[in-house]
Structures are given as structure tokens and as C-alpha cells.
């Protein structure tokens, strides 16, 4: 992992502190002052210890344009999730099991580890696909109903809509 400058560290620390504090409030489900004070110190220590490990982005994640794209991503993702569930339901309830499985691959333009992880998780939850492995920038996808084995076409079919938005966020 590359060495971080002080300002990068400060940005990552702030972002993870804010998110951990939100999680703390959700866990305790209260705004009592003693809980909040303990929470501030606990989350600060955790954020300091994990500054090189977990956080993905600096303070620029709160940019309104990025927040808008994140919400849009969430909407598209939920739509794909519901579609994929009806797809599974159709396949499971058909007596003849209409499947034609295989593993296809494609390359992505995403650079950071975190964005690749988000893309891989989204692909697993979209209709008929399951991420088997990510090697460098190549994704290996188990497809329950293979329509094409050409990497370019598979990319536009499976991940095109997600990657366009992720490139704008990360």
C-alpha cells in the first residue's frame, strides 16, 4: 500500500470518524449525553487505528454532485436487485429449470480497490450473475444464462450501467 500524506490521512480519519459515529448512534438508538460522549471517544480511537485499512475516500465524498450520483446508484441497484429476484423466482418455479450456465470474463476501467469491491458486490446481486474472482482489472463472472462469451458485449450486458456511475463517484 502506498504511503499517505498527512492531509490524506486527516481526510480519511474524518470520514471514518463521521461514519462510525453514525453507526454508534444507530446501535445505541438514543441521544443521551453520556452515550454520545463515550461514543465520540471510542469511535475516534477506532478511526485512528484503522486509518490505513478501511477507509476509501477523503472528505471530497461529501461533494453534493457525488452524493447525488450515490443516491442514483442506490436507486439503480435496488431496481436491479428486485429484477434479479423475479428472475430467480421465474427460473426456480419453472419445472424444466431454464439454465445455460458458464463463466465469462471482462475488463473494467475502475482503478481503486474499493470501487472494484462495490462493483463486484453489485454484480453478484444483479440478474443471473455471480462474481467468482477479480484478478487485477479482470472480472470472472458465473452467468446462469450465457448470452455471449465476447468480453466487450458481456461487459455492456452485465456491468455497463454500474461502472459509468462508479467512475463519477470514485
Amino acid at each position: 500500500m502506498k504511503n499517505l500524506t498527512f492531509s490524506e490521512k486527516l481526510g480519511r480519519f474524518t470520514v471514518s470518524w463521521i461514519f462510525l459515529m453514525l453507526v454508534w448512534i444507530a446501535f445505541t438508538s438514543t441521544f443521551a449525553s453520556q452515550e454520545l460522549i463515550v461514543g465520540v471517544f471510542t469511535t475516534m480511537v477506532i478511526a485512528l487505528l484503522s486509518v490505513r485499512l478501511f477507509t476509501c475516500c477523503t472528505i471530497s465524498i461529501f461533494n453534493p454532485v457525488k452524493v447525488f450520483w450515490m443516491i442514483w446508484y442506490l436507486i439503480i441497484f435496488l431496481k436491479a436487485l428486485v429484477e434479479s429476484n423475479f428472475d430467480v423466482a421465474r427460473r426456480v418455479l419453472t419445472p424444466s429449470l431454464p439454465i445455460n450456465p458458464g463463466i465469462v470474463k471482462f475488463k473494467t476501467k475502475l482503478q481503486t480497490h474499493y470501487s472494484k469491491m462495490v462493483l463486484a458486490n453489485s454484480i453478484t446481486l444483479t440478474p443471473g450473475t455471480l462474481t467468482v474472482d477479480v484478478v487485477g482489472d479482470t472480472f470472472y463472472i458465473h452467468w446462469i444464462d450465457v448470452k455471449t462469451t465476447d468480453p466487450e458485449k458481456a461487459f455492456t450486458d452485465i456491468a455497463g450501467q454500474f461502472e459509468n456511475i462508479l467512475l463519477k463517484i470514485f
Partner: peptide
């Protein structure tokens, strides 16, 4: 959907297809 996911695990022929049905349906 939880029921459909379990039915998918029961019916699908190999471990990858079972994962497909199980993951998506039980998640939603």
C-alpha cells in the same frame, strides 16, 4: 422470497447455480 431462495437451493443442479439462487433471493 426467503422460501423461493431455499427452494432454489433445493432444486438447482450444482453449487454455483445454488449460490446464484440462494444469495439473491435471501438477500432481498
Amino acid at each position: 422470497f426467503l422460501f423461493l431462495g431455499a427452494l432454489g437451493i433445493f432444486r438447482m443442479p450444482d453449487v454455483y447455480n445454488r449460490l446464484q439462487a440462494g444469495t439473491k433471493a435471501t438477500t432481498l
